[in-house]
Amino acid sequence: MEIRQIATLAGKEFWDRIRNRWVLAVALVFTVFALVIAYFGGAQQGTVGFRSIEFTIASLVSLVIYLVPLIALVLGFDAIVGERERGSLDLLLSMPITRFELLLGKYLGLAAALAFSTIAGFGLVAVVLSAQLDLTALFHFFGFMLSSVLLGLAFLSLAVMVSTFAADRTRASGMAIALWFFFVLVFDLLLLGGLVVTGGKYGGEIFPYLLLLNPADVFRILNIFGLDDVRTLYGLATVFPRALAEPWLLGLVMAAWIAAPLGVAAWRFRR
């Protein structure tokens, strides 16, 4: 494996996203949404203005869980199939690079663009709010940003996997949207439905482990268990064993969610 080749490919992807203002647009979306939530998130309760970092993060988690997977899937779904459909893939593959280097280079370049816009977007929010945040709160917010990046990288990995399976861009976009529906909307409903239908008799003990099968849930747990005040806001604390809620363990699960789809993509793309 030649790092130089991977860096060249990643660099092109990253600068493409900087130049076409993708990074700027996504960062702005994050900043605007986060500020709106921070200041107006409590409007339903009759209050306006920044309340607490716990409350803000809890609201942001709900936003990020919808938005980041969608953005990541849109960013990566045509990474390979797009090159193939445009007709530029053959020329790339005739270069002295391996298919794995091409895949990894593309992933890393897109990942850098996504991470950069996430950190810039939410980082700006942290700067705006910094007067109202103490060190602990900043630490929590930093954890939230980091986990948002990991969530994005996991879904980007899924997107790149889709881009190696789909026969054309249209199908790839369909598969990406289906993945979003499944992980963001359907998965939790299925689990809950399963619990309710069985009257909670079966699956109660494995329920927390099943949550690990969805990177969006891993993200939720990561953030909610970091905040004592928030934990009680969600019923999750009652079903989720403390031992599983170690940040490093959940971080490892996220890392697996990043590596596994990429591995499948590499297997699929090897020929």
Partner: peptide, 30 residues
């Protein structure tokens, strides 16, 4: 591959790059 030059049929390059940037990208890969 380092010794090979290939011009595909109906070559497709990157619209968003300039001519010079296109060559610089492929030069780095080669």
């Amino acid at each position: 591959r380092r010794k090979i030059g290939y011009l595909p049929e109906n070559v497709v390059l990157y619209d968003n790059l300039t001519g010079l940037e296109t060559l610089e990208f492929f030069a780095r890969l080669k």
